[in-house]
Design a protein around this nucleic acid. Structure first.
Lengths: 220, 220
DNA sequence: TATAAAATTTAGTCTTGCCTAAATTATTTT
DNA sequence: AAAATAATTTAGGCAAGACTAAATTTTATA
């Protein structure tokens, strides 16, 4: 049986919160899901004790996904990212408008629908935010991107994604032309403060480590 | 507040069942919704007694929509029919594959999404089945179609829709090339048995009243 | 290391929306 | 018009998934 919309949301968030290797805490999950911690405890206890368990849980120790749970999560994430890509490409949504729409659609599209948009888009590797799209067989592709902070003078590449930036920073970066798919070139590197001088759209700007570590690049 | 998915389904079905002017019965609604009659009674009692009532109901007398209820129903129907049109045109669904998908999507798309696909499709008047699409201001357009059974020798037109046919008949008609958008021409009329001879795709076929009354035409 | 603070869990409740079984009301049949 | 049948409603229940308040456990602080 396909998990309910609620459960799909739990799995998706748990996947994200456990990408760093450590289990997800009740509180963090509650915050991500906009749900009270007590409700989260109830749900994960139920999920952990089902026939083929989707997650593993020990009191006060947080929760991790089983491989079945991971698959179910990747299915939802694949739907989400394909939908975002598709909404942007076929309906002219901008990259910051699509999230909410995809958040609702991801739970109701059929596998057939998923196949159709994947094919129509040419089986894309990343969504408009630069996030990797899980493959059709539900594996997360390896991330071959490099943080901008790792580049040095004369290296260049294409921006793939920006991670861990809040809305404010995102707007700021957007203003500088630093969005996914933009080409950049490092013109100078200051070993002292780790500032990078880069050229974007013919303009030169200098960025500090707090920013360059959040921008991910495909080297060229 | 936007009605829940369940309530949207109730409203949609009630709209359809009351198009003939008479109220919808508990039993008919239950059948359409694949729900037990007792459950229907419960739900319509609740809906009839809410702040701005979406429907009117008297025990044992069936149910009708208020104008607010009608609007909400038309909103869902508009979503459904726009979605079907759009899935067929942009993702290569065939007209008989889209229903289920639209049935789920109709409840979760935003007004923005609705506007975008309506615009992308050029604000179509009918869906792939030939059904009229409610307008953006939630009115059902007048139906200017004529049953094929009303045509006589030398009249011609385009098939708009086929109504009240079961899957079997639909397949049969499909085999004869009788699908929405096909041009037809009446070559003869038999007043005795009401049979019509018509030309479709260069071929001549004869149809009885039981069929011609289900095919709707735009005269030309 | 005792205590305060934070995180988590338990217990009990609520709403939505469905179900079954039994009771009631309408409609047909005879 | 009474009896049989069909439709509808009432009553009581259940599962999902959320909430609050209170209890407990863990972690951090003094």
């Amino acid at each position: 049986m396909k998990p309910s919309t609620s459960i799909q949301d739990y799995l998706k968030r748990i996947y994200e919160l456990t990408e760093n290797g450590s289990p997800a805490s009740t509180n963090d999950l509650a915050r991500e899901l906009n749900i009270k911690p007590a409700s989260v405890t109830g749900m994960i206890q139920k999920l952990a004790s089902e026939k083929p368990a989707l997650l593993e849980y020990q009191k006060h120790q947080g929760v991790t996904l089983t491989s079945a749970g991971k698959k179910a999560a990747l299915e939802v994430i694949r739907h989400h990212r394909l939908l975002e890509t598709w909404l942007v490409q076929t309906l002219g949504y901008s990259w910051d408008e699509v999230h909410e729409e995809a958040e609702r659609l991801e739970h109701v599209i059929s596998e057939d629908f998923e196949r159709r948009i994947a094919a129509a888009l040419g089986h894309p590797l990343r969504d408009p935010h630069g996030e990797l799209i899980p493959t059709a067989d539900l594996k997360m592709p390896l991330d071959d991107s490099t943080p901008l902070s790792a580049l040095r003078k004369n290296q260049s590449g294409k921006i793939l994604s920006i991670k861990g930036a809040d809305a404010d920073l995102l707007r700021h970066l957007d203003g500088l032309g630093l969005t996914p798919n933009t080409m950049i070139e490092v013109t100078d590197y200051s070993p002292f403060d780790h500032n990078l001088s880069i050229k974007v759209n013919k303009k030169n700007i200098v960025l500090g480590l707090s920013i360059t570590s959040k921008i991910f690049i495909e080297e060229s």
